[in-house]
Structures are given as structure tokens and as C-alpha cells.
């Protein structure tokens, strides 16, 4: 892993609590990502989404982000000016968010939103921008791109909306894509389609992918490597194929709680939190 795209060392994110003191929601997370597919798994509140947003410096005050090192292609993101950071966003690292119902601007046409992601980084004649938008919509397997580009987000289905989101996030050819629960808001029937699209595009472009999800199965089938997060810390790191050999009690608990087709158990086990200490 000599060509790490992103290096994170001792990342910490804290927010003030109602009582005044600061509560750390990400507590000293370290990892590296190359041109590979990294999965981050954890239950809600484990700090996985905040980690994704902290990388893009999207945590706004009063939230606070510190890290010994948060480097993208060797440049420390925490030292960058706002202008320099904006160049990284979209063109260097971009992010697909959870629910297209909320993550697309409701009053701007889809085509214009996608185009904006491109023209923010590259000045190009408008005809070429249009052509690229249409190409991108085709790349996410939208049949009638000309028509879809003219629609408003509320006229799209959830699956369509998420494909638009992917098109928008990949049009400026970033090196690293963070996918934050990209399919959780979608119907099960379209989840696989959307993931296949992401998978194919990431592979073709040779990009890095950070896939954040609460779904162990999904992550282990789409990623090369997996980090398990729990209460703001990484508790397990392993190759996707070796997940069954995980040692940390939390990971074992999660694995045990996944239902199987050939299940013979009467009841699904519940996570035994006492075993892990804490709450």
C-alpha cells in the first residue's frame, strides 16, 4: 500500500454536549486507503458517517476535528485554505450521500446540478458540459438522459435519484469516492443495481472507494477490506474474505446477529453490550 490516496491518523471529532463539556464521537481513528474498496461498518451512532464527513472537512462549528495527519495524496487537508479545500472537494474526493430525497436540491433541474459539479472545477464550453452530463447519466444506466436532465428531483424515483447523485459525484473524476450508506434509503430491489453501478464505475476509473454502511453482508461482498467501528473507535480491521475470523466481541456479535437463509436458530441473538464494556 505504498500509493495511499488517503492517510488518516488519530482522527478525533467532538461536539459540545448540553452540559457544556465536549463529547468525542470519533475517538482516534487511523487508517489508509489506496485505489481499493474499503468498507466501514458499524451501527448508527458509531461515528462512521462523521468520519466520512470529517475527511471532507464538512464538520462545521461547534463541531471540532483534530488529527495527527489527514492527508490526501500527500497534502494535509487540515492545513489547506478554504479555496484549496474546495478544489479537493468534488474533483479529488467526493461523496454519495444517503437519501436523494434530501441530498438533491429540490428547485434546481437535475442536469444543472450535475453540470455544476463539473464547471465548478473545469471551465468548459456549455455544449461540452451538456454532452458530459448526458454521458454521465448514460454511465449510471439512465435510459433517457436528455429527458431526465430536465427533470426536478421530486420527479425521480429513489433509485433514479441515487443514480443522478452518483453521476454528479463522479463527473469531475475524483480519485476517491466516499459512499455514505448509499442504498439504505432505497427499495431492496434497486439496491443491488445502484451498488453495481458504483462498483463498475469505481473499477473502470481505478478510483478508491470508502463504503460506509451498517450492513455487514453488503460491505463484505462489495469491498476488499473492512473496518469495524464501534463507539467512535475502530475495533476490527480485516480483509473482506476473512471477516468470519474476526476476533473482537463486537464484530462477533454483529456477525452472529445476521440472519441466514439456512438458519436453524429459534431466535436471533442480540448484541451483548456488557461483553464489550461501556454502556
Amino acid at each position: 500500500m505504498s500509493d495511499a490516496l488517503l492517510e488518516v491518523e488519530n482522527l478525533r471529532v467532538s461536539f459540545p454536549s448540553p452540559r457544556g463539556e465536549r463529547v468525542e464521537v470519533v475517538r482516534g481513528v487511523s487508517f489508509r486507503v489506496g485505489r481499493e474498496r474499503l468498507g466501514i461498518v458499524g451501527e448508527s451512532g458509531s461515528g462512521k458517517s462523521i468520519t466520512g464527513r470529517a475527511i471532507l472537512r464538512l464538520i462545521r462549528p461547534p463541531g471540532r476535528v483534530t488529527a495527527d495527519r489527514l492527508a490526501f495524496r500527500g497534502r494535509n487537508l487540515l492545513d489547506l485554505s478554504d479555496t484549496a479545500m474546495r478544489e479537493v472537494r468534488g474533483a479529488g474526493i467526493s461523496m454519495v450521500m444517503q437519501d436523494p430525497k434530501f441530498s438533491l436540491n429540490p428547485v434546481i433541474r437535475v442536469g444543472d446540478q450535475i453540470a455544476e459539479a463539473l464547471v465548478t472545477h473545469e471551465r468548459r464550453p456549455s455544449r461540452e458540459v451538456r454532452r458530459r452530463v448526458i454521458e454521465m447519466l448514460q454511465a449510471v444506466r439512465i435510459d433517457d438522459p436528455e429527458r431526465v436532465a430536465r427533470l426536478y428531483p421530486h420527479q425521480l424515483s429513489g433509485g433514479m435519484g441515487q443514480r443522478v447523485m452518483i453521476a454528479m459525484m463522479l463527473i469531475a473524476r475524483p480519485d476517491l469516492l466516499i459512499a455514505d450508506e448509499p442504498t439504505s434509503a432505497l427499495d431492496v430491489s434497486v439496491q443491488a443495481q445502484v451498488l453495481d453501478i458504483v462498483d463498475a464505475l469505481v473499477r473502470d476509473e481505478g478510483m478508491g472507494l470508502i463504503f460506509i454502511s451498517h450492513d455487514l453482508d453488503l460491505v463484505s461482498s462489495y469491498c476488499d477490506r473492512i473496518l469495524v467501528m464501534h463507539r467512535g473507535e475502530i475495533v476490527e480491521e480485516c480483509a473482506a474474505g476473512r471477516l468470519r475470523e474476526a476476533r473482537h466481541p463486537y464484530t462477533r456479535g454483529l456477525l452472529a446477529a445476521v440472519p441466514r437463509l439456512d438458519d436453524t436458530r429459534e431466535e436471533l441473538p442480540v448484541l451483548d453490550r456488557r461483553a464489550m464494556g461501556g454502556t
Partner: peptide, 15 residues
């Protein structure tokens, strides 16, 4: 405070 504002920032749109 809406998500689409975050989307815009992710795209690198100036504040």
C-alpha cells in the same frame, strides 16, 4: 441545515 447544501459543498461549490 439541509442535506442538499452539504451536497453542494461536497461538489466544491464556493460558499
Amino acid at each position: 441545515s439541509q442535506e442538499f447544501v452539504v451536497t453542494a459543498r461536497v461538489k466544491g461549490v464556493p460558499e
